[in-house]
Computed example of a mutant assay.
Amino acid sequence: MHALIVVAHPDPRSLSHAVAAQVSQGLHAREGGHSVEIADLAAEGFDPRFGQADIAVHLRLAQPPADVLAEQARIDRADALVLVYPVFWWSMPALLKGWIDRVFANGWAYDFGEDERLHKRLQRLPVHQLALGGADVRTYARHGYFGAMKTQIEHGIFDYCGARVQTSELLLGSDSADVLANLCKAREIGRGLFDARRQSRAA
């Protein structure tokens, strides 16, 4: 099976990239011939700006631009989508949000047309998100971030398209012990990405 790991951090030396690499290594450590593609949005220069061409796609007046079609094809090839990103201003980075804005388009991720009915088109896609935050768990809990993360991302984005969020991890802490624990957690998630028992429970 094939996983697409999307990482959104401008620094290739970042913990986000290290976590993405550990997910990949964990998956490769399992038997079964699984494959992985890492989409480094910053290094690849993906344009996150939602412009006139994207509005035309949303209104079903035009086909998606070539860069969007390429990203959709990446997801179509994948049996699982993994998002790895730092928490910026208590949300995902603009680069990743723009990737979702443009790629998860009307007519591909969902259909909302003249009948004014929503048709979810990504029901086959399991999603795993790993967000990295610098604050401690008490700070996030005190301000309701966990609920906000579930509402905004799990429900607001993926449930709207029918995709199943199987992993939603907020990896916290910045000292060496925390970093090591987070890397181990990422590798564990990679190893279990295509766990048959997990797939059957989510079906």
Rank of each mutant, 00 (worst) to 15 (best):
R13A: 15
L122N: 00
V36G: 04
P12Y: 02
D79K: 07
L95C: 08
G147W: 00
H2D: 09
W108Y: 05
E37S: 02
R74A: 09
L81R: 05
L170R: 08
V137T: 13
L118G: 08
P12T: 03
G190E: 11
S168E: 12
D175Q: 04
I75Y: 01
V87R: 08
L4P: 05
I153G: 10
A203W: 15
A109P: 00
Q25E: 11
P93I: 12
S16L: 07
D40C: 01
A18F: 03
I55W: 12
N106V: 03
G107K: 03
I55P: 06
A21E: 15
S16K: 07
I5P: 09
H58M: 12
I189F: 14
M92L: 11
S176W: 14
D54F: 04
K185M: 11
G133N: 01
C184A: 12
E188T: 14
A135D: 09
I157C: 15
V23N: 00
D40M: 05
D159Q: 15
D79M: 05
G173T: 13
E116P: 02
V127K: 01
G134Q: 11
R30H: 05
H34P: 00
I153Y: 14
A203R: 15
I75E: 00
R49D: 02
I38F: 01
C184W: 09
H28Q: 12
R124A: 10
A141C: 04
S176Y: 13
D47H: 13
A177P: 07
A202C: 08
A131M: 14
L59W: 04
T139N: 11
A21L: 06
L27A: 06
A8M: 08
R74K: 10
A202R: 08
Q22Y: 03
L96G: 02
L183C: 04
A3S: 08
C184D: 13
M1C: 11
A94G: 06
L180Q: 15
A21P: 04
Y85Q: 02
A42D: 12
G98M: 08
T139P: 06
T139H: 10
F194L: 14
E169I: 03
V87N: 04
P65R: 07
H143F: 15
Q63Y: 00
H28C: 01
D40P: 02
D115Q: 06
L59A: 01
V127W: 07
W108V: 02
A53M: 01
F112M: 06
G134I: 09
R138C: 01
V19Q: 00
R197T: 14
R201W: 11
I5T: 07
Y145A: 02
A177L: 13
L180E: 15
Y140E: 08
A53E: 01
V23L: 01
L130H: 07
G192I: 11
S24G: 10
A42R: 07
G173W: 10
R121L: 10
Q72D: 09
P48H: 00
P10W: 03
Q166V: 13
Q52T: 10
D175A: 06
R201F: 14
A181F: 10
K185P: 06
